[in-house]
Design a protein around this nucleic acid. Sequence first.
DNA 1: CTGTTAGCGCCTTCAC
DNA 2: GTGAAGGCGCTAACAG
Lengths: 338, 338
Amino acid sequence: MPRTKRVPTIHDVAAAAGVSVTTVSRVLNNKDDVAPETFQRVLDVIHELGYASSLAARSMRSRRTRMIGLITPNMDYPFAIEVIKGVSRAVTDAGYDLIACTSAYKTESTVERWEQQQVARLNGTITDGLIVVVPRAHVFRTAFPLVAVDPHHRDTSYPAVVADNYAGARAAMEHLLGLGHLRIGYIGGRAGLQSARRRQKGYEDALCEAELPIDPDLIMEGDYTYESGRECARQLLTLAQPPTAIFAANDESAFGAIDAARALGLRIPDDISIVGFDNIPESASTVPPLTTVDQTIRVMGREAVRILIDLIENRPLETNLVQVPTSLVVRSSARRIR
Amino acid sequence: MPRTKRVPTIHDVAAAAGVSVTTVSRVLNNKDDVAPETFQRVLDVIHELGYASSLAARSMRSRRTRMIGLITPNMDYPFAIEVIKGVSRAVTDAGYDLIACTSAYKTESTVERWEQQQVARLNGTITDGLIVVVPRAHVFRTAFPLVAVDPHHRDTSYPAVVADNYAGARAAMEHLLGLGHLRIGYIGGRAGLQSARRRQKGYEDALCEAELPIDPDLIMEGDYTYESGRECARQLLTLAQPPTAIFAANDESAFGAIDAARALGLRIPDDISIVGFDNIPESASTVPPLTTVDQTIRVMGREAVRILIDLIENRPLETNLVQVPTSLVVRSSARRIR
DNA sequence: CTGTTAGCGCCTTCAC
DNA sequence: GTGAAGGCGCTAACAG
């Protein structure tokens, strides 16, 4: 790349068109009080120079930028990707621009501060509103619209979009119970996590309703990772009385559980049934394809955008918590007990 | 959201810490000429207020932002998503921040101008360098580093990362030829597209080398979409002498071709073999799983970042065009001819 | 209809 | 070691 060419500013355009910067600004913002002829001349110069107003400078002065920001600690994991897909489409459909941000320089212990910093950096200057994916913080200090997707906590000061975790877990359990399973293991997420708690409640209530005991030995606390899924499953399957089915509270840990079962020489679903939660794209292509709960992550992204734009455009919010319905996707990782 | 709280500025921090904004700025940028005690006090206030310097304001003044931008017309299609995954990881590993941007307001006829505008908007202010995904333009007017992933054209003024399209197509064809197919249909992308041209060349050269004729009836120009794949396949399969195999130049059109074959009552791979190109995640979970050419899109993203950072940090570039190798992934959509 | 003026929040000289 | 002043590129009053 030649690094010589200076990128043209509004001054260059003004000079070339023989008008003041104000006039150029008016053209840029489609104000109607410019003579058609002047308007066209400025437009021509803009095209000729390949000029576009600097996002930074523009953001500093104008209250509205028509940009929506998305913050995620990482764009390399399935949940975030699915949210981004949904958000991307909804944002452009609404005529806004999207800027999705990640950054380095954060550790497990500093995420909350990192989240707040990202919010402060963007909101009110670059973006008109923000979507935060799986935020840890209860509260964000910002004067501008902000919506969360699947926050860690339940009582947040900001509006949030979540899956109907409870109903999804119930559906998964009813599927397993319907297949005749009586001893069903559970691999959860960290207890601090709202989604994990709701899913576990679904697990327990389903057992209660079926008048089955809740056996603490069958309930493992993992952390939604592949590794924790594998380790928890290993423990469950080596119990004196192992379960005949496992409900893992997310797909990644279900994959780990599948791995652990295999390592113990168990066939899936013949020897052990496994059901997940999330329906990430990968779950369709594992062997066997995973029966799981679809939480339509894209829809969550779309809903977040809808709420955010309502907020930005000052329309009243009907609710602070949108629950997106879940549905069971039956594939081949669970079968009727022999 | 309470929309009352103003987001704190450097002035608020300065006031609260009892120093000047200059001092706060020095702390923010880790300059060493601040008394340790002052430094700490300012830091404390920053945390307490949840302050972070506005990206817009900072971008306007400082030359380096440690942000890398990515521009794509859309984040809701598999190729872009895969690039983003690779880029995201590489960028954070390198200690930079990533901002990925899309916007509405562009049509088929205005993409080139749109691309240029995005570049002008970001580069040199918000971002230190830019990655453009599948750019149409030959040239970008920018004084700052820019790298393309899979550009439309071959001779670009900017460095680019591409897959080894030719070798990939050859591999796909040699697979089909090895399975005994003699009449192989081809569904390409638009002729203006560099990747489409290279893949078609691979198709033709493979036939030549096998001393098979190149039958124009068997060569269809599509546009890499599902619909065009379906339509092209329909035409191929209703030929007087239909092919026994189809090589589609990308996975999406291969999916369309599968659809068309089914609609005609053909079984895959028993009646017709189909091979794709891309190896997007979906291709593993179609029925049957698609035999395709893996162009390791993530690696392309990673390479783009590597080059870009070299450029940003003024290291010399060894080459202007990085070719990422491709490899055939054999699944179940192609079989030996009966 | 158009231009002049005054900042937005920050970083960079240059004083002290 | 610290602060005051100026300006980055742009938009929003206010004049004319």
